[in-house]
C-alpha cells in the first residue's frame, strides 16, 4: 500500500525529518540520520571559518545524493536576513527547498508570523519551495498557504523544549483546513509525542533536539522512526471513540 508524502512533485521516503544540530561530531550525525530512516535532513547556513580551516564538511558525511538537504534560515530575526540566507542557501545547495524561520523573540524562539508571511510570499514568488516554521495558529497556517507555502510547519511546543504537542486541538483545526501538507516542527520530546503528531493526521514531523539531546541519540532516532510509522498507521486505521465506561471484548454467550 503506497503512502508516500509528495510535496510539489518531490517524493519523500520517510515522514520523519531530522535536524543535524547539536551532535558531538559528524560521525554521530551520520549514524543518527541513518538510524532514523529520514531522507530529509535540515542544515543551517553559516560562514566558512577562514582563519581555522577544517577540511571536514557536513556534506562529506550526509551525502546530498542520498538525502534531501533542507537548509534553514535559523537565527534570522528579520525578513531581510531570512531572504538573504534563503538565497545563499539556494546557491550553496542543490534545490529550491527552504525551511523558513523568522524568529520573533530570543527567549521563546516563537516565530514572528508577520515577517514570516512577508518572507514566504516573496520567496514563493522567486520559485522557492517554502516550508515556514509557524505557530499552532490555524488562521496563520491558512495565510501562509495562501502566500504560497509548500507546506506549513506549526510548532508543537517551543523549539528545544521537549514539551510535546501542547495544543493538539489547534493542530487538528490546522489539518482540517489545510490544502498543503502539515509538518510538526519543534516541541517533540520523546517518541510518544511524535506518534501523537502523526495520529492527529500530520504529514510528517521534524525532530532535532529530542534526538540530539537524548542520552543515546542513535537509539532515540530509531525510536522516532518507529513512532512516526506507528502514528501514521494508527491515523490511517482510525482510532476507536473514547468512552467513559467499559465495553466487554469477550462474548457473554457460552459462559458457565
Amino acid at each position: 500500500m503506497e503512502d508516500k508524502l509528495v510535496i510539489k512533485g518531490i517524493e519523500f521516503k520517510s515522514r520523519l525529518w531530522i535536524g543535524t544540530g547539536k551532535y558531538k561530531d559528524f560521525e554521530e550525525t551520520a549514524s543518527v540520520v541513518e538510524a532514523s530512516g529520514a531522507d530529509v535532513v535540515t542544515v543551517a547556513v553559516r560562514r566558512v571559518n577562514i582563519v581555522d580551516r577544517k577540511s571536514e564538511n557536513l556534506l562529506d558525511y550526509i551525502d546530498p545524493k542520498k538525502y534531501k538537504i533542507l537548509p534553514n534560515t535559523a537565527g534570522c530575526y528579520t525578513v531581510e536576513d531570512a531572504l538573504r540566507y534563503s538565497r545563499l542557501a539556494r546557491e550553496a545547495g542543490v534545490s529550491d527547498m527552504i525551511k523558513l524561520e523568522v524568529i520573533g523573540d530570543e527567549k521563546t524562539l516563537f516565530p514572528d508570523v508577520i515577517g514570516l508571511l512577508k518572507a514566504t510570499e516573496i520567496l514563493a514568488k522567486e520559485g522557492f519551495i517554502v516550508f515556514p516554521y509557524t505557530n499552532d495558529d490555524p488562521i496563520m497556517a491558512k495565510r501562509l498557504e495562501d502566500a504560497g507555502a509548500a507546506a506549513v510547519m506549526p510548532l508543537g511546543a517551543p523549539i528545544g523544549s521537549g514539551l510535546g504537542i501542547r495544543n493538539p486541538y489547534n493542530i487538528k483545526i490546522i489539518l482540517e483546513a489545510a490544502k498543503v501538507p502539515v509538518i510538526v516542527d519543534a516541541g517533540v520530546g520523546t517518541a510518544s509525542d511524535a506518534a501523537i503528531a502523526m495520529e492527529l493526521g500530520c504529514d510528517a514531523v521534524l525532530i532535532n533536539t529530542a534526538v540530539a539531546g537524548a542520552k543515546d541519540p542513535i537509539t532515540m532516532a530509531e525510536a522516532m522512526k518507529h513512532a512516526v510509522i506507528a502514528g501514521r498507521l494508527a491515523h490511517k486505521a482510525g482510532r476507536i471513540p473514547k468512552k467513559l465506561y467499559a465495553t466487554a471484548s469477550s462474548p457473554i454467550e457460552g459462559m458457565l
Partner: peptide, 16 residues
C-alpha cells in the same frame, strides 16, 4: 566578501 556553507542545524540548530 561572504563565503557560507552548510553546517549542522535543525530548528535553530546552528549557533548564530
Amino acid at each position: 566578501v561572504e563565503i557560507v556553507y552548510f553546517v549542522g542545524g535543525g530548528i535553530y540548530g546552528g549557533q548564530i
